[in-house]
Design a binder for these strands. Structure first.
Lengths: 230, 230
DNA sequence: ACGCTGCATACTGTATGCACTTGAAACACC
DNA sequence: GGTGTTTCAAGTGCATACAGTATGCAGCGT
């Protein structure tokens, strides 16, 4: 791990604690902090060049978000997701995303253009990590016009909670599975003005999306548990 | 520290900050803290007999949960829900609850017994505030066997976020609207082993449930805005 | 009388210090 | 050699102290 001991990272945001929260969030999703890893408050504070207080606040908020767990007198650690919990997260998307799309209705032309552009970018992107971000953006754009913002925020939250494992898988297996074909079918239905068909296709897309990641974690889980036991 | 002459909260939990979070949560739902009200850290700390540090941690976590908002240099305040946001919360229940029930399947006999008992208690409860709790319990019990715990937790979170307004309405209008009839229809379908019918009835139940609260807030909203402007 | 400016106060945001708990290594004992 | 005990270091949890910022008010000027 690259640690610049004395000069902290940018920490641009107004509140220091928000900045710390962002920094730790980033560490979690991109794998610098592994599953179940314990966070040392003083080291974190030193590394970021701030005191323990804003660090503790940030960690508390991340715990409230579900990214960390706090065990009494032992501080915070990265909350590991079980394979079954990850599966449950993915199982909600076939329910929520089509509903959001139905509420959003057929997107306007400029959004359809953007969706096609994003899908071409997805096909063209070599970096699998970048592909994950583009895929997320595609789904975000698809439901951008949904009037139920609580639902949109909910879907975003599901995406955030699963992203860490998608990235971890992509780091191991370099071959990204792209859903460009399924996206194209959804777009075709939308162009035809067939909202029902688009929602059905989106549902299928969401049903298949999570399977490889869950399978990967399920296969990997016993190994991790064994490591932890030793 | 001056021993508090008035110590309203037990503060039982192991962590002080958790206890504070619970206390503030309770203050919000039962109306001691009104919409948009600002929280003074020192007064809160004194009243609960602790220092500011755990208070700040608790407030930060409540903000992460969405119960409070933090405005820079002005601290935390109770996050008011707009009528439309409240409506969006209620609009998700007809989607989520039936799905959870379908995943749960027909409940075992002892759960059905419990549901009928709760429904009779709902009909018999005079106190409208107690009735809200019983109704929530009924819906919790209905989906208790749902294997997707993320979904169950999600529904609980929606219940928490709306409860404050249900209680506020019940305080004004003392007449509670009981859904015992709709519950009975759902139970009848479950007794018949007809899961589809039960889910459909539950969907209707959820579609009608939120309307009066949303209407109440929508009617009340301009008045509140005017008060705040003055 | 009205508005503007500067000051005082209150409160938030951050840092630091202290006590207590926990985990583990060293040690004694079996 | 293995096991139970003691001691000690590391680290969290809470309290307090300090600094920066917004807000209300008084006084001044017009």
């Amino acid at each position: 791990m690259s640690l610049s001991k004395h000069e902290p990272q940018a920490l641009k945001r107004a509140n220091v604690s928000d900045a710390v929260a962002d920094a730790v969030r980033a560490m979690i999703v991109d794998g610098r902090l592994g599953d179940g890893e314990r966070l040392n408050e003083v080291r974190l504070a030193e590394r970021l060049g701030v005191s323990r207080t804003p660090v503790r606040e940030a960690l508390g908020r991340l715990a409230a978000e579900g990214a960390l767990t706090s065990t009494p007198s032992r501080g915070y650690s990265v909350r590991p997701l079980t394979a079954s919990e990850l599966q449950q997260l993915y199982e909600l998307r076939p329910l929520l995303d089509p509903h959001a799309l139905r509420l959003a209705g057929i997107p306007p032309a400029r959004t359809l253009d953007r969706l096609e552009k994003l899908n071409r970018a997805l096909a063209a992107t070599a970096d699998p990590l970048r592909a994950i971000a583009v895929d997320d953006d595609w789904h975000r754009a698809l439901i951008a016009h949904c009037p139920n913002l609580v639902l949109v925020e909910l879907i975003e939250s599901l995406m955030r909670r699963t992203r860490r494992y998608e990235i971890a898988l992509m780091r191991e297996r370099r071959n990204a599975v792209r859903a460009t074909g399924e996206h194209a079918r959804i777009l075709a239905a939308l162009h035809d003005g067939d909202l029902d068909a688009a929602c059905a296709a989106l549902k299928r897309n969401m049903e298949t999306g999570g399977a490889p990641i869950v399978a990967w974690l399920r296969e990997r889980e016993p190994r991790v548990a064994a490591e932890r036991a030793s």
